[in-house]
């Protein structure tokens, strides 16, 4: 029983990272029906930029700058990779473009930070809290609080601010949003910016937990988070949190009961299952529009 609780606790922390990245997939899908397949690389860049800034400013003061970096990086991806293919209504152009940009970012990161894994210092004590026999690392709590906080902040922005309402209106009916005086191209850029900002934050949240990072950090995380976005539904905010936790726990269980070598299998199996059973995701609303 205790082992089970331990596996769940560790799984939740990993799962929140998947959730945060998947949440980013949702943001851009809502406004433009496109995804940034370089989302994992946005996370990796956030972590490495964060590492460099940490040695200069310390972990906590680095955070706002990494958020800003992610925001700008996402806007660049949209302008360079996505906008041209939206303009010509290309169905697949953005897929190739965001994958290509992801590869470019990875190569750039290798040039700047090298191929060796770099240690990421922990901003918090490394002794675990023990709660009823379950060991929880302070940096795991940081992941959960940070990722949830980020998602809640974005939700709050979307519900309460006029720009957030413009984002939701664009997601509802882009043409009608234009008639309101909303520059919907700008709103799509904004959603990419916020999406990458979320990923960059996820990068500096997960880095202290895995203790060493390199330019390959993003690839696997981005793919698994894609599975989570599909499991959780590309349209439903709550779904990715549940989906992330499901995958995170499934992985720690596989790692413990079978072998850590098979840790990555559940994500892919879940992805295949969901795609077969329910293409719109477990929690996704049916995407039939009222005319």
């Amino acid at each position: 029983m205790q082992i089970l609780l331990q596996l769940i606790a560790s799984g939740v922390a990993v799962g929140m990272i998947y959730a945060a990245i998947a949440f980013g997939y949702q943001l851009t899908f809502a406004t433009s029906k496109t995804l940034n397949f370089g989302q994992g690389e946005a996370l990796m860049l956030g972590a490495l930029v964060g590492l460099s800034l940490t040695s200069w400013l310390g972990y906590w003061a680095m955070l706002p700058l990494v958020l800003l970096f992610g925001f700008v990086q996402g806007a660049i991806v949209e302008r360079l990779g996505v906008r041209p293919s939206i303009k010509i209504k290309s169905e697949f152009g953005w897929i190739m473009a965001t994958i290509a940009l992801g590869i470019i970012f990875k190569n750039l990161a290798e040039i700047v930070w090298g191929r060796e894994a770099l240690p990421f210092p922990s901003p918090l004590p490394t002794d675990a809290y023990v709660l009823g026999g379950v060991r929880i690392l302070p940096v795991e709590l940081l992941i959960v609080v940070g990722a949830l906080g980020m998602m809640l902040a974005v939700e709050f922005f979307n519900r309460k601010s006029i720009w957030g309402k413009a984002v939701r209106a664009t997601a509802n009916d882009r043409d009608a949003a234009g008639l309101m005086g909303i520059n919907t191209s700008q709103i799509i850029t904004l959603s990419y910016a916020v999406s990458s900002m979320t990923a960059a934050l996820a990068g500096v949240l997960v880095a202290p937990r895995i203790t060493a990072i390199d330019a390959n950090l993003g690839a696997v995380l981005g793919l698994k988070a894609f599975a989570v976005a599909i499991i959780g539904g590309l349209e439903s905010g709550l779904g990715v949190i549940v989906g992330g936790i499901i995958l995170g726990v499934a992985e720690t269980m596989t790692g413990y009961y079978i072998s850590t070598g098979y840790k990555d299998v559940p994500g892919l199996v879940l992805l295949l299952l969901v795609l077969m059973v329910k293409p719109s995701g477990l929690f996704g609303k049916a995407t039939i529009k009222k005319v």
Binding site: I162, N172, G181, I182
Partner: peptide, 27 residues
Amino acid sequence: HSPEGRRVFASLSVDENLQLGAFARVT
């Protein structure tokens, strides 16, 4: 322009739809 077929923002409230009508003024 109030377009053919109404095109209201279905998942926003009535109040929010009106606020967005005034988007250009609010911003």
